Structures are given as structure tokens and as C-alpha cells.
Simulated assay, not measured.
Amino acid sequence: MLSRRSFLGGVSAAALAVPALGGLVASPASALAGRRAPAVPLPLTIVNNSGQFDNASITVYIVGTNLDTGEQCRVTPDGELVPVSESDNGSDGFADYSIPLQSSGDTTLDLPSMSGRIYFALGDKLKFKVVTDGDGKPALQYPAGWVESDPNYQVLHDTVEFTLKADGMYCNTTMVDMFSVPLSIHLQGSADQTTGTVPAGGRERILNGVAEHPDFAQLRQDDLRVIAPGHGLDQGLFSDTYYDAYIDEVWTKYQSTQLRVDTDNGKVYTGQVSGDTFNFDGGVQPIGKPSTRDVLFCDGALAAPNDGVTGPVAAILGAGFNRSILLDSPDQPGTDPAGFYQHDITNHYSKVMHENTEDGKAYGFAFDDVAGFASYIQDGAPTSITVTLTPW
């Protein structure tokens, strides 16, 4: 089974390297036998049904990593994958990698094999900057819309994430960092799949829904976006002790109760708390007592190494904390969404995201794919992908 972790630990979009879809591994040869290869380049159709912006007001950016060379690249309007260069920076200090939409109707582009993001900017262009990384190689600085000092703060923008490679297409909408623009993905191939669709009026319900909770109110940045609570914490807009009482309750419960974790590799691990450590059998590394920040970013004590043992257990714990279900059952992961987010201390940001998608799926935190609740789809033989800016 493929492991997919989207931007683990709240990796900042302002980082110098493009984080690939986390933990993606190739399917075994037996699983690929007889399977048609993906269409490469893959036709990408962009549909503007926003009802708020005409095509002339929208620009697209496709940036990421060349899977063969590891170079950071961008896609040109004619579908060429080109390495980024500091010489791309213009007189204003920023690289213009924008791809305009057709003047009317849908826009079709060629998507090459790569791992990265498709950004959409509405009303103004995004400002990317090419710098030199620690190894002396060109690297991109990405928009960090949740940071008021970022040059893209005032620009309405959002993104989808994808990896297109020899064994298929893997893609998702994401709210791990923020939510601003309703986007939907339609992937066709061996199956016909759609995810991420926010019903009409859902954008305002999301912005209002997050802001109406007192602890989360400052996460709304006017009519631009709502930002994830982890980023809010780092910006001084969210309490760094929000989850502490719940974490303490979980730690107390499992000092005298065993937690059973059934991972997607078919193994069940049993753990119990001793002091500040959750100790599991089966070779799982001890997991320390997390902080509120660790829970929100699924990082620190809850970081999930791609080792097939500790990683899956840490991911399930991270999901259990965000969904606030660890006190409800000693058998994890929980699979009934009706039981998620019912505790007073919970990730209300993620809760609102899930409440406002047609399929109930969203990427509200980095481990939201645990038990299959992320707005993520994949296909081993894709023939086309359509990203729609859906009605506001």
C-alpha cells in the first residue's frame, strides 16, 4: 500500500526545497504487471467556475521537483519542465512563472512527470524567488500566505499537490497550511474520481465557521483565507497550550490502559505510557509526550519516519489527537467520522474543512489520510486530470 503524507510536520511553503508528497513509494512490480503506463505528459484541464474572477484575472504556476535529477523546476506554458535559475528573478527580485488561462472557456496544459504543486492566483500574480540553497544549488522560495510580511500575503491563492511518475498519479487538495480558494480535482484513468469539492457558499461557511470558535477566531485573515492553527501558533494567533489538557488526559488514561494500534501494513502494535514516554512493542521507537505544536504540525514527538513501523504508529497517534478520539477507544485508528472532533478540545479548523466538502474529505492536518479521510486520490494509469475553481 502506498504511504502518502502531505507536507509532513507542517513543512513551510516558504522552505527552499519543494516537499514531495511525503513517503510516496513505488508500487511493487507485481502490482504493476499488466498495468498501462500513465499518459505523460498528462493532460491538465483548468476550469474556472469560481463565479468571482474571470479567466484574465487568474494565473497558474506549476512548480516542483524533477524526479530524475532532483532539480527544482517550473513548467512553462507549453509543458516543458525547466530548472529554476537565479537569472529568472526580474528587476523586482522575483521570478514570474505565471501561466495565463485562455481568454475564455477551459485551459488545457501538459503536465510532465514531476512532484510538486499547481498554484492558482486570483486578481494578482504570485511572487516566487529563486535563491541559492546550502548546497549552492538554485532553489525556490514559496508563497507563505499565512505570514503577514510575505510578499504574497495580500494575494488570493491556493494550491493542489501532486506526484506524477511511472507508476501513476497521486494528487490532493490541501488545507494543511491554509484555505483560501475552493478547488476540486477530477482524475480519470482506470477509475473516475473526484475530491475536494466545496459546495457553493462553502468558502464563506469555512471562513465563518473557523472564526466563530473563540480559540480559532484569529486564524481568519479578513476575506483572504483562514490559516492552519499550527501556523497561527507560530504567528502568535493561537495558544501554544491549547491541546495540553487533552494530552495530559490521554497520558493519564494510557498509564493504566493499553492502546492497540492497527497499522495499514497489517500489524497491530500495543503500547502503554510510562512517565513521559509511550512505549510500544514490535520495534516501535518510544514516542515522547507531545506538545500542542507537535499535535498541530504532526511533528516533534509525533514525527513519522518512513520506516513502516514507528511512522504508521506516530501518524495514527497524530490523527487521534487532532480528531480527539484517543480517550474514546483504546483501539486505533478510529474509522467512524461521526465520532471525530466531538471533544471540546479538538482541531476545529480541520472539523470545519471536513464539514464543507461534498465527500467529507479534506487535508486539514498532515495525517488526515489516516483511515482514508484526506482529499486525496490516485490512479495507476491516469489519462487526464481536471482542476476546477468551484463556485464561491
Rank of each mutant, 00 (worst) to 15 (best):
V210Y: 07
I377K: 07
D359L: 00
Y97F: 12
G9E: 00
G202C: 07
T69K: 08
D78G: 14
D222A: 15
M169H: 09
T346D: 01
Q218G: 13
P229S: 04
F162E: 14
L101N: 01
T65E: 07
G311C: 09
G9P: 12
L44G: 06
V60Y: 01
T390W: 00
S30T: 12
G380N: 12
T194R: 06
Y243I: 12
A56K: 12
Y61K: 11
S149L: 09
N172A: 11
G311P: 03
G282S: 07
T257A: 11
S384L: 10
N208T: 02
F53Q: 15
S115W: 01
A121F: 00
V25M: 15
N172G: 08
L296T: 08
G288Y: 09
T270H: 04
A29F: 00
L164W: 03
K127N: 13
T107P: 02
R4Y: 14
D106A: 05
S27K: 14
G202M: 08
A366N: 10
N49E: 10
Y376M: 09
A304S: 13
L126K: 06
G364L: 03
H348W: 06
G318C: 07
S3L: 13
T310I: 09
P41F: 01
I316V: 07
D124F: 05
A374I: 03
G380M: 14
M175G: 02
D78P: 14
D223R: 08
Q272F: 05
E358S: 02
E71M: 15
T346E: 01
G271H: 02
L326C: 05
R5C: 13
Q332R: 12
F321G: 02
T107I: 11
D78N: 11
L326D: 00
D331M: 12
Y142W: 12
A31I: 10
S113C: 10
I58T: 04
G51V: 01
